[in-house]
Nucleic acid binder design. Structure first.
Lengths: 156, 156
DNA sequence: TTATATGCAAACAATTTGCATCCTG
DNA sequence: CAGGATGCAAATTGTTTGCATATAA
């Protein structure tokens, strides 16, 4: 599945969306792709500055947003840094979150939790909670997304 | 399982950990437990002020931390509001996160993703990503946790 | 050339903290 | 009445934005 996009690489994806290729962007992509595991904005800046001292933190953030938009990067943690709380539920449940309007739908998936427990046991972890968040667009917001993508097709 | 704790209620849990019961804490617990769904700190403050106008936002935060510690509340979103990124993996994977030392272990659970996709379809969602984070303590940190709990037993 | 990207500094927003005061146990 | 809890304001911290300048296409 989908080997073609992969062959393109970031540069191709940039062009396809009418985004420019700058040394800063190249560098940030490189750092993230070379690195096993996850990095935060500060860590990326630190590594990048070794090779490009003038780089600014805002460029890192702007580039990360772009990479997320191009689906080149996966984000760990909540996009909005606002914490939400709910009374500890009797039944664990999971969340379906709309990135468009922020709507949250709860659902249950007991089977998943079993699997998770097994995995945790394998690693000797003592699990105190889990967070299963499916991110995407609800039917209403999905339409707007389509418009948004169309606007960026290489048609001009 | 575990009906006994439930019978105690928040007040009992507070006492068991040597925490004081104040009207502010009572109120905040009440608000969260009465509310279906999730609330953030501001929303809690807003509702609480209707009945207790002098309440401050920092008390809300401090109380939320306490409730989390007592496991009376579940948190949606990342505890640290620092976003982390990783190169978009070919295989989706999930994270096992140690709340003690921050260690992150990646694992795969393809079966879960199928289940999630089904759920998403049921709700008409267009999924763009998922976040499965199991939170707990790794073997090393779990020990320290035990100490921590012992220190709070009503033994003095 | 010309709109897009960048760097810098200032602005923001969520959360945390210091400290004097209050109040539970 | 002693130490934990609160309220207030100021400090932190992660992230975003405005704007003049630099630069990819």
């Amino acid at each position: 599945m989908g080997m073609s996009e992969k062959g393109l690489g970031p540069v191709g994806l940039f062009r396809a969306k009418g985004k420019r290729i700058t040394p800063q962007r190249r560098l940030i992509v490189e750092i993230i792709q070379e690195h096993e595991g996850h990095l935060d904005a500060d860590e990326i800046l630190l590594r990048a500055k070794a090779r490009y001292p003038r780089l600014s933190l805002s460029t890192v953030y702007r580039t990360l947003d772009l990479l997320r938009e191009l689906d080149l990067v996966k984000e760990l943690g909540l996009a909005t840094y606002r914490r939400h709380y709910e009374a500890k539920p009797n039944e664990e449940h999971q969340h379906l979150i709309c990135l468009g309007c922020g709507k949250v739908i709860e659902f249950q998936c007991a089977h998943c939790l079993d699997i998770h427990q097994n995995l945790a046991d394998q690693h000797g972890f003592e699990i105190t909670g889990s967070r299963v968040e499916l991110l995407g667009y609800c039917p209403q917001c999905a339409e707007k997304e389509v418009d948004h993508v169309h606007r960026h097709l290489p048609s001009e």
